[in-house]
Nucleic acid binder design. Structure first.
Lengths: 116, 116
DNA sequence: ACAATATATCTTGTAATACATAGTATCTTG
DNA sequence: CAAGATACTATGTATTACAAGATATATTGT
């Protein structure tokens, strides 16, 4: 089993959680694309993943955005949560915690027997 | 945001983690299909999800299986981990924990500001 | 003035997994 | 022997993350 296999698996593990994390990241701040990408640095997410996700969340009404032109530099599109988006983020967080506890239980046999 | 939406999202969240959980479940015991499904009851997994997964893991050499005919009842196919499967399960578990800690960090803004 | 670089966003096609649905085979029970 | 329970198999679909590359604007170097 190579490291490469593990990374490929990790990209499956990310599914669903990225949506939740983006909403959570925007729950306290108003941010633009690359800024969000910076917050998610530890996860190793790329632009080609983030931007389509942001567009989807916008179309679904969970995010609002506005262009901000600056005196210098490329214009930026800033995102913030809608009411609906905040409700969804909180529902997801609750469900995620529950699911995680269930996973923890099911992972026990491996983690406890690991020293064998 | 309906409960239905949340469940649809949850099926995305399951991606990747099911593979890990199945391997973990088989780390201490030798089990057949429906028995595994029973262990995963809390997650709400269906046969149409489990059996193709088992077949894939078998083809990849992470699981071994043998038919067991009984005096009464339908024959059962019992699964157990290979050495390779155990190594992969442990690598996944480590990586999963790391990813989870990262997610925890990123979820903080939402969980702490939730009382606003 | 022109090329190169940095910043920022968008687009397109692909791969992988979970799932719904339906189907097959074997045994038990009324 | 029909109906139901148990156990496994097969097929097609939806969703998401991602790689790769395209587009647009401003800055910097020569």
């Amino acid at each position: 089993m190579t490291d490469h296999d593990l990374e490929r698996w990790l990209s499956q593990l990310r599914k669903g959680s990225l949506e939740m994390v983006v909403l959570a990241t925007l729950s306290g701040e108003r941010l633009y694309g690359l800024e969000i990408l910076g917050r998610l640095e530890t996860l190793g997410v790329s632009e080609g993943t983030l931007y389509p996700l942001l567009n989807r969340l916008r179309k679904e009404g969970q995010l609002e955005s506005e262009w901000e032109t600056r005196e210098s530099g490329h214009p930026r599109r800033y995102y913030r949560l809608t009411e609906s988006g905040r409700a969804r983020a909180e529902a997801m967080a609750r469900r995620w915690r529950e699911y995680n506890h269930q996973l923890d239980e099911l992972m026990r046999p491996l983690l406890e027997g690991g020293s064998r």
